[in-house]
Structures are given as C-alpha cells and as structure tokens.
Nucleic acid binder design. Structure first.
Lengths: 342, 342
DNA sequence: CTGAAAGCGCTTACAG
DNA sequence: CTGAAAGCGCTTACAG
C-alpha cells in the first residue's frame, strides 16, 4: 500500500459507476447507459446493473455527470417574489413535476428586478442547468442573450406569446383583468377604480384589460387609477384604499391588482365604516389564501398557477428530452370567482 | 484539423482555467489558487490572473470544481413549508447572506414530513453541497446519520439546544409561548384556550410554554386545548375558532399558535358578532403580514426569522471556512407585540 | 511561493 | 447491442 499510485489516491470511498460495472460484470459505459435508460441495452444487462446498484447502494455523482455531459439535473427556476404566495404555489407544482423525473429546482428570486435576474441567470447558468423556467418575458437584453446563447431549453411562465420558437405556459393577464372589470360593470358599477402596486409587467397587463373593458363601456376615467410602485401588502392595500376614498369620492367599485391589496382594502373599509359592496364593490386578483374568509368574502380571479407550474414543467421535461412540445404556447383558463364583495 | 486528437475534442468553446493561466503567463494551479484567494500567492500574480479573468470573461465551472474538490458552492436549505411566510423570510435572509459569499441556496421543502426530508437529504447530499441548513431537530434517525456521515457543516435553525457539537440559531419557542400566555394572564384572562394546527415540534413547544404559564397561574385546563393536525390557514383558524366558541363557552382568551389561524379567528369573531377583546382576547404567533391590519389589530409574538436566517447563514459560512463558531448555540430575542386584540 | 502529474467520476465519440 | 480510450475542467498531493 505504499506504492506511489496508492499514495496519490484521493478516493473518497465512494461507490462509483466502475464498482457497479464490475459487480454487474459489464463495462462502465454499459452501466452508464443502463442507468440513464438509454435504449439499446439488453434487458438482462439492465436488470443486472440495477441489481448491482441496489446491492452497492450506488448514488450517481451529479458533478461528474455534469462535467462529462455538460448538463446537470438541476433546473433553474426564476420567480419574482415568494412573499406573493402565487409563486409559492407555482414552485410547488414545478417541484412536484420535476422531482419525480429526476430534476432538482434551483430557485432564484429576482425581487422583480431585471438586473437581479440577470445576475442570478449568470450564476445559475454556470451550473450547467438542464433547463430554465422563467417568469414572463420582461428582462434585460443581456438576459435574453444569455438564455439564447446557453442553448438551453427554456419555458416562460405566467404569460403567453405566439412568437415562434418561444415556449410558454400562462394565461392572458389582460383578458383576466378585463373579465373581472366586466363583472363589476355587469353589477351596474360605473365608477370603477383600479389600484395596483409593484407595477410589474403582469400587473400592467391587468391594467390594460381594465382600461379596455371600461373604454368599451364608455366608463374609462384615468383619474380612477391609483398606481404605486411599492411592494404589495395588506398594509399598502389599506393605505391606498383610504387614499382612494379620500380623493375620488364618487367611485362605486375598486379592482385591486392582487388579493393582498384587496384584503387590506376590505379591512380599511371596515375601519372607515364604508359598506362593501353597498357603497363600494371590491374585487381582487389571484384568489389567495384568506380571500374567501374576508368580510365580506372577496370577489376575485382564480388564476391557474398550479396548472401553469405543472404544464410548464412538463413542457420543459419534453424539451429536455429533445421532444418538441406542441403547441409551444399554452394558454390556461382563469376563473372569475364571484363572492359577496361585489 | 483532421488529426485523431482533434476529432475527439468535445470542447464547448468554453473559456477554461487553462486559458486564463496562459493569458496570465502562470500555471493553472497558480491561477486556481489566485482565484480562490488562497494565500501564499504573490500579489502581482494574483493581479495578473484577475486581469486575465476579466479580459477573457472567465466563469469557473462549478461542476469541475465540485468533482475535483468534492465540494460545491451550493448550500442545501431545508424548510418545512413556504406557505408559512415565516420561512419565506428565513430563506430571504439566508440567500442575502450566502449569495454575496459565493454560495447558492438549494431550497428543499419538506412539507413537515420527516420521510420527505430524508428523501430530499439523500438527493441533495449527492450534489456534494458545501453545507447544510436544516429546520429544527426533529428528523428520522436515518437523516441524522446521513448528515453525520456526510461530514458536512450543518446549522440547525429556529430551535436551540445546548448539546455539544450541535450548531444552532433560533429562539425558545417554549418561552415565547409562555410569554404571550403570560401577557394574556396579565390582562386578567383566566380561561385561555390554545388553538393549534400542523402540530409540528415547534408548535408543540409553544404549547408547552402555554401549559407551563397556565399551570403556574393555576389556570391550566386541558379541555381548553384545540389541536388539529391539518395544514394551517385562515380558513382553518376560522373553523377552529367557531368550534371553540361552540364547545367551550366560558373561554375569555385564545392563543393561536400561528398568525394565519389567528387572523382567521378574528374574522370568524366578526362574523359571529363576538367582540374582541371585550368578550374574548385573541393572540397569535409570528407577526405575519396583515396582522397589524386586522380588526382589531392582532397581538402576537414577533419572531426573529430574518435574524435567525442571517445569523445561521453566517455561522455556516464560518464552519465552511473551517472556523469554529463561538458560541455554537445562539438564542435570539423574540418580542411580544401588544395590539388591540388583547 | 510556484508547478508537473494525476485524479475526481462520469459520458461522448468512435469502432465493431 | 457493447466496449476501450479519451476527455470534461477543475484541485489535491507531492515536490522543490
């Protein structure tokens, strides 16, 4: 054991593919192919390899695999913010779909900042992920180039486009915004305010839907929009609702761009003694936890984030297998949930 | 270019450490050392290497690094559930501390299931993380062994122990549970109910604190505990509150083990026309988003999850540098936040 | 303080 | 359908 070769060993005692191959009486290449389910390997050999794996307790080394194949089993998933529970649900669905297929989610939170997204992208791309899941289409030109140059399969979540070669799963934020506005119109409301925070692209698409619906009804009034770049929260919703009521006294409805704001607005209405929906109807967006518990229960749009996460992950799985998903753009249904606040 | 050697090339065109070394006129080993800030490299050489890195746009390959050093720059972080925004805050603080130091968080969600934690641990350990951040101490024996056998630095979050060799940052869930109960006692309440969901270890520690405080005051009554193994949510809080009021009519206060339950309870009280705090005082735990907006604003315990995340990540950073953190167990302060619900 | 050699544990590309 | 050789891009261990 004092041979130079032995002294140079750095072996960690880890069970390697070589050990498995020897145990199964095949070559390492065959063992590798058998493990990865590459077809063209005899069924008997596959069985022998799997048995050897079980007996030895072999665990493949992702680092070695990534180095040799220049592709890991990690999928980078970029979302704006976890305090918006919408994205927690999305991640949950992504994880449930990807993990059983052998992929880990490498979660990145961009805080709605394109520059931060670009930085995360650089960092994660170095890890040779097997694929990319990103939120929406709004990013820096450099980010776009990074994604393109990586040549990695990439699926865009939450929004859709028909641009060729772009894979995406989402729903129409604009139409959903219009739908909830039309619901308020159908209740006889005419002075419908729009209150938004964060002002990210999807929020502004909802704003577009709101505007379109009101213009169509001949009720649009730009002064009824209250937009704040601050982070969305119940407290901000309450504050904006108060501000709205103090400055636009004739409104008869409010569409909040997210349920947390709407919940805050509803609580503020209580505090101010403003009757909902008698005096003002209130609607939210996303159908988050607690909205059905509010007083009165909140009318909102139930968005298919679980479905988006699952379908998006499935599409990515196809791309990673070099299959071509058809269609490349999937638009999922949302649902207006009418409760007592409108 | 038709030499056998050339035909076998798989080069991805990637800029490698070799390129950097050549550009800087040093050996790859020296370049490697200079990049990792290993001391014992001449300052002039370090500068030349860094200049070459900049010029070539070199990005180190984490897979190759992990394979060669059997250590990656990823830190596995295991939390129970992201729908409890407590853990979103924790992760945020962890990421803010680890990322600038060159580490990525590999987030794993256990869903409060020790078996799922074990599975995630196996999967993540294969990735040779540089360190481990786990929630609490309650896990399978196999998980414990996996962590031990990995030899990786590991910091436990949210709870503390004085057991030697165990690194942890948290606060006393038991004392915090006792403190909020004592606050209710100090308000003259004597029939104080305890309502809990999920029933994870930390929830049960809060229950212990509740019991201890009430026993000390001679007010403990086991029938005032309402424990549900279901997932915590506003809806469940509302339901449990109704159940409590229907079956324990003489209570004068409720301590909910988490703010989401308490918020649901407060909303249920409104619906039922039960005055808070006149008829029943209500207290929560964690001080989550919206608790200050409730009607009335919720009395709760503000828990130091940002601080736990940051201090825990810092401690892990020390361990990964092979420093020995002193002390090995850090107990952070919580704060009883008295609002109008009590 | 710097370097030449070997190796980490896989997979790719070629051959048969 | 199976395999021997080379290589992925780093770092470790040894030497000077």
């Amino acid at each position: 054991m004092d041979l130079p070769a032995a002294r140079r060993r750095r072996s960690s005692g880890r069970v390697t593919l070589n050990d498995v191959a020897r145990e199964a009486g095949v070559s390492p290449i065959t063992a590798s192919r058998a493990l990865r389910g590459e077809r063209g390997v005899g069924a008997d050999l596959v069985a022998r390899v799997q048995e050897a794996v079980r007996r030895l307790g072999y665990v493949p080394d992702p680092a070695a695999r990534a180095l040799a194949s220049s592709r890991s089993t990690q999928v980078a998933v970029l979302v704006p913010m976890l305090s918006n529970t919408l994205f927690v649900d999305l991640l949950e669905a992504v994880h449930r779909t990807l993990f059983p297929a052998g992929y880990q989610s490498l979660i990145g939170v961009t805080h709605y900042d394109p520059d931060e997204e670009e930085m995360l992208l650089r960092s994660y791309l170095a890890h040779r992920p097997a694929g990319l899941l990103v939120t929406g289409f709004d990013r820096t030109e450099a980010s776009r180039q990074l994604i393109l140059a990586s040549g990695l399969p990439c699926v865009h979540l939450m929004e859709t486009t028909e641009a060729p070669g772009v894979y995406c799963v989402g729903f129409s934020q604009t139409e959903a915004g219009a739908a909830i506005t039309e619901h308020l119109l159908s209740r006889g409301r005419r002075r419908i305010a729009f209150v938004a925070a964060q002002l990210d692209p999807r929020t502004m698409q909802r704003a577009d839907g709101y505007r379109r619906a009101l213009r169509q009804a001949g009720c649009y009034d730009a002064r009824l929009e209250l937009l704040s770049p601050d982070r969305s929260s119940l407290a901000l919703g309450a504050q904006l609702f108060e501000e709205l009521l103090a400055t636009r006294r004739d409104i008869d409805a409010v569409f909040f761009c997210n349920d947390d704001l709407a919940q805050g607005g509803l609580l503020a209405a209580h505090r101010l003694g403003i009757e909902v929906p008698a005096r003002v109807a209130v609607a939210g967006f996303n159908d988050l936890d607690g909205s059905d518990q509010m007083l009165p229960p909140l009318t909102t749009v139930h968005t298919p984030r679980f479905e988006v996460g699952e379908a998006g992950a499935r599409m990515l799985l196809q791309l990673m297998r070099s299959d071509t998903p058809v269609p490349s753009s999937v638009r999922l249904p949302y649902r207006v949930v009418v409760r007592q606040s409108s």
